[in-house]
Design a protein around this nucleic acid. Structure first.
Lengths: 159, 159
DNA sequence: TCAAGGCGGTTCAAATTTGAACCGCTTCGA
DNA sequence: TCGAAGCGGTTCAAATTTGAACCGCCTTGA
């Protein structure tokens, strides 16, 4: 196996397009959210995820996994957002250790104000630039990529 | 215009797949490079870019733009890599301000050692998980996404 | 009953990133 | 020719991220 199977031109193009577009899209959205609402993309995602959970609350670790973030990083961000009044921490009922992050009324209000602009930006930057077929392929192919990587992490929470 | 055009299910799937796969892929590659070679993905990209430039050197600002990185961030990283002996700084001939970052022999050697493992990882994580048609669509569609965003930045160097 | 091991989170120091301020050239227009 | 504006990079402080160490709770098995 001593020989490397380099990427050919076709593969290289796909790879470059993927990496560079991902970087740019992320940067762009972060900027938009920060300018318009003072939220980072991560904070927005936290609010979205909590808002979507029933009772608006979720365990720290599960939240970290969902958002593909390190545990300590999440602790930090929840701390910031707690200061800002967007979320609170609550003890988990059935486990003395165990903390629930919960979205507050202010958090929901913030989300309502932020969502339209964010969705608009997502459309403008990504969704509306692609055809329906392309979106279909993206969902399918990249979904598979995501699942493959997720599978590789047996233990799971090693971030 | 008061009404938000929310993402429908099909669009949402594409969006989610894109964001989450991008995050995971990036994390995965960073990890692989760091474990195997002690390089961050950014550092690897810097070496790649310099190596590809004729004379193995490039202006700081151009490098920053290529890599979609802030100027100060690049200054920092080049500093680190200079300490590690992978690159050097050189004054630009035709401009007294103006700095060229140049890859060293050690830098090229490092790149040669790192490349096979990196390419392998890129294949395993992304390229080989997709069909040729999917790669084609990715290159085409996401290439368009990248170009659109790049166009929006008229001045260019505002990072 | 009790100690080892695992889980859920937090803390801590170190590395990285960001954006604004700054500094020395360069370039123009008055 | 002089001075304001712009470019190319760096510096600096502040925000964020990371990974390892740690702490208390919980489970399990001897």
């Amino acid at each position: 196996m001593g020989h490397t199977n380099w990427l050919n031109d076709e593969e290289m193009k796909a790879w470059i397009a993927f990496v560079s577009s991902a970087t740019l899209v992320d940067r762009e959205l972060d900027q938009q959210l920060k300018e318009d609402m003072g939220l980072s993309h991560l904070q927005y995602q936290i609010l979205m995820t909590l808002n979507g959970a029933e009772s608006g609350a979720m365990r720290m670790t599960e939240l970290a996994e969902r958002l593909i973030n390190s545990k300590s990083g999440l602790t930090y961000q929840i701390g910031q957002m707690e200061k800002a009044g967007l979320v609170t921490r609550r003890q988990c009922e059935w486990s003395k250790s165990g903390v629930l992050a919960e979205i507050t009324a202010d958090g929901r209000a913030m989300l309502e104000r932020a969502a339209p602009g964010h969705v608009e930006a997502v459309r403008e930057i990504l969704i509306d630039v692609l055809t329906a077929e392309e979106r279909q392929v993206l969902a399918e192919g990249l979904g598979r990529v995501r699942d493959r990587i997720a599978e590789r992490k047996p233990g799971g929470t090693c971030w």
